[in-house]
Design a protein around this nucleic acid. Structure first.
Lengths: 221, 221
DNA sequence: CTTTTCCAGTTTATCGATCATGTACAGTTC
DNA sequence: GAACTGTACATGATCGATAAACTGGAAAAG
């Protein structure tokens, strides 16, 4: 068995991850400026790869660039977060429709693995890896839809959500967040062939409706 | 009344448009290589703005970049085009739902303008400006939903469709393509308050289902 | 006192040059 | 002649430097 090739060194990719980490961890906050030259100096690289990384984050909607003025981390309101969740819900519903078109459910196995992973993360009280597995769980389902465009767009909005939602839901018991995914999985695995698709769609819609409600409650406090 | 500021000179933006034009017009075709240095020389600029423009096209999914190898225009199959149309349909349905949530229909006026514009383009047999107005028609509706995330994603997939679908539908009478939009508009303007939302959604779904069928037919020939 | 103009400082946008990587092809070995 | 090796070359990735644009505030004008 041969080891995989080591990941090629691409500064812009590493930088993108570093910037994302900085944003997710709260090291740089919404509204903060990202000065290309400073990051270049701090990371010991030149301005170019920083700019390219920023261009990608801009496309995802995590930062905003104003020509000749600068780049700031997007201020995201609860409304916008909710907007994003609505979009994601639509995309995931489409995914379910595609899945029931193709009738290939082999991906469910992977979803179960993620489920186990999430439970492990809950046990260890590791919010960070829980969030990652949460995203992966949904990702696997989207991949199951085998719709390239859907996958591309979904990735963008999940990244986007991910950077902002983690902070909001910290007060929820992680165990509850975790078990909500089992509900979706149960529908996908059920033997009730007649309403399976519709029930799965409803499970997804409910999943997101709950999240949206929680964000709304948070907003009103 | 003050005139708007003149569009700022940003090479990367101009270059992005130029590349898109080249792709849409068929000057460069799917599978073709885009060599940064050659375009830089041809346009009389340096490599940097070309790279940044390419990075954006990559995010939209119009080109694909392989590190250290190069950038090619995405080969897009009928299947992928259909995938994209399904996604767009989902997003536009969400838009309608949002619109009926907010109950603000002022944007319809703008849609009617686009409709007129399309009819004018049909008269002059100007496919290019017809396509642009077609996109704008849908855009106005999406904007009416006032969902920032939805708008961001929709723009990406419409740009994507636009670059590929124009060529496919050239055999359809433009007049027919045009009048299909009136159907959506009619539902939005109808006074049947009870089923208005549902009927509008169905009109959108039908709109895209028709497009998808046409692409499928084309594929099988 | 308010408005305008100008200037220095900061940062972005672009440039020209260099470094790193992948490709193709010629030469070598078996 | 098939498989391997080495080497030039094309091109992408990154660098360091420069040009262009914005910012804030001081000085000048009204």
């Amino acid at each position: 068995m041969i080891d995989k090739l080591e990941k090629r060194l691409l500064y812009r990719e590493e930088i993108k991850d570093k910037l994302m980490d900085a944003i997710i961890s709260g090291m740089i906050k919404p509204g903060d400026r990202i000065v290309e030259t400073r990051w270049a100096k701090d990371l010991g690289v030149s301005q170019s790869p920083i700019r390219e990384a920023l261009r990608e984050l801009e496309m995802i909607g995590v930062v905003e660039t104003i020509p000749y003025k600068g780049c700031i981390v997007c201020e995201i309101s609860s409304e916008e977060l909710i907007d994003g969740l609505k979009v994601r819900a639509s995309l995931e519903v489409l995914a379910v429709e595609e899945i029931f078109e193709k009738m290939d459910f082999t991906f469910i196995e992977k979803m179960e693995e993620m489920m186990e992973g999430m439970r492990a993360a809950v046990k260890e009280d590791d919010m960070r890896s829980f969030s990652k597995l949460d995203t992966e769980f949904h990702l696997v389902m989207i991949e199951g839809a085998e719709n390239k465009q859907l996958l591309r767009l979904w990735k963008q909005c999940s990244t986007h959500d991910f950077t902002h939602i983690t902070a909001i839901l910290t007060d929820r018991p992680m165990e509850e967040l975790c078990e909500r995914h089992q509900i979706i999985l149960d529908e996908l695995k059920s033997n009730n062939l007649k309403n399976k698709k519709q029930r799965t769609i409803e499970a997804i819609q409910h999943h997101f409706a709950t999240l949206i409600k929680e964000v709304e409650n948070k907003k009103n406090k």
